[in-house]
Amino acid sequence: MEGGYRQRLVKFFTFLGGVYFVFEFLMPQAILKSWGIAERHEAISLGFVAIGLVAFGLGIINLFMIHGSKIVFRRKGWLNSIALLTGLLMMVTFSAYDWRLDLRHEINSRDAVVVAEFARDIVMVNADAERRASVPPLPVRLQFLAESAEKLRATTAEAFTNEAVAAQTRANRDVAVAVTNISESLNVLQESVQRLNAADNDEARLAAAQAISANASSLAFLKKQYGRAVTADSYGKRVYSFLFNALFVSLGSAMFSLLGVYIAAAAYRAFRIRTVESSLMMLAALIVMLGQIPFGRWLYSELPEIRAWLLEVPNAAATRAIGFGALVASLVLAFRMWFSIESDKFSGDK
C-alpha cells in the first residue's frame, strides 16, 4: 500500500515537471502576459536549471565511493584510482583557487564598474520619464558623476604610481603593458570629466556621461587585466595552468584524435564490402575529405565547390529527413516519459 502511494507520488511529480513547458508553449502569448508568466519565463526556466545544478556533487560522491573502496581494499587498479582521485581533488582545489583570483580582480575593479554603470544609468533614466521621477534631478546626478569619476581617476593614478607597482612593472612585461594601458585610459577619463564640467547644455553633458561610461568600463577591464598579469606567476595559478594545459587539454585532444584512427580503420572494413551503398558512402566521404584540403584542390580545382554542394543540398536534405524521423520518435518517447508509461520499474518502489 505504501509502495503504491510512493509510486503514484513519483508519477505525479513526473507529470508536474512537464506541465509548465507544455502549457507555456500551448497558451497564447496574451494570456501568458496577463498572468505575468511571459516576463518571468527566464527566471522560471532558471529554477529548473537550479534543480540540476545542485546535483553536481552526485558524480563526485560516486567517484569517491567506487575508487575510494578500490584504494581501501587494494582491489585491482587501485593505483589508477589514486591517480583519478588525486587529479580530481587537485583540479577542484586549483579551479576554485583560479575562480577566487578572478573574484578578487572583479572586486578590485568594482569602483570603475560602479562609475561606468552610474553614467549609463544617468543616460538611460533621463530618457525614461517614469523612472526620472524617482531619482535626483539630472544636474545633481551629473555633479555626483563628475566627482566620482574624478575620485576614481585620482585613486587609481595614486595606486598605480607607487614603488610596488613600479617593481612589478620592471619584472613582468604583461604587467608593464597593463600599467601603460591604465595610465592612458586615465588620461582619456580625465578628458571626459573635463568635457562634462565644461559642457553648457544637457545634450553635451549626457554625451560626456556616455563617454565616461565607456572610459570607466575600459578602465575596469584593464584593472582586471593588470590583476591577472600580477597573479599569473603565483604558484596556484601556475599549477592550475599546468593541470589544464599539460593534462586536461593534452589528454582530451589525444583521446579524440585516437578515435579518428579507429573510425578510419572501421571505415576500411566497411568499404571493403562491395555494394552500391558502400561505394556511394566512400565516394561522398572522399569528396568531403579531399575538398577540405589543398591536395584536393590541386587534383581538381572545383572539388571544394562540389564538397560544399554535397553538404548543403543532398546531405542537408537527408539529415533533415532523418531528423524528422528522430524528432517524431523523441516526441513519442517524451509523452511516454511524461505520463510515466515508459518504465514502471523506474516509478516502482525498488
Binding site: 558524480g59 583519478l84 580530481l88 579551479s95 589528454l251
Partner: peptide
C-alpha cells in the same frame, strides 16, 4: 594508458563542477 585515462577522468570530473558553479550557479542564481 589506463593510468593517464584515469587521470583524465579525474581532472575532467574536477573541472566540471567548479565550472558549473562559476559560470551558472553563482552569477545567475
Amino acid at each position: 594508458y589506463r593510468f593517464f585515462e584515469h587521470l583524465f577522468i579525474g581532472i575532467a570530473a574536477g573541472y566540471g563542477p567548479v565550472y558549473a558553479i562559476r559560470t551558472n550557479l553563482w552569477p545567475r542564481i
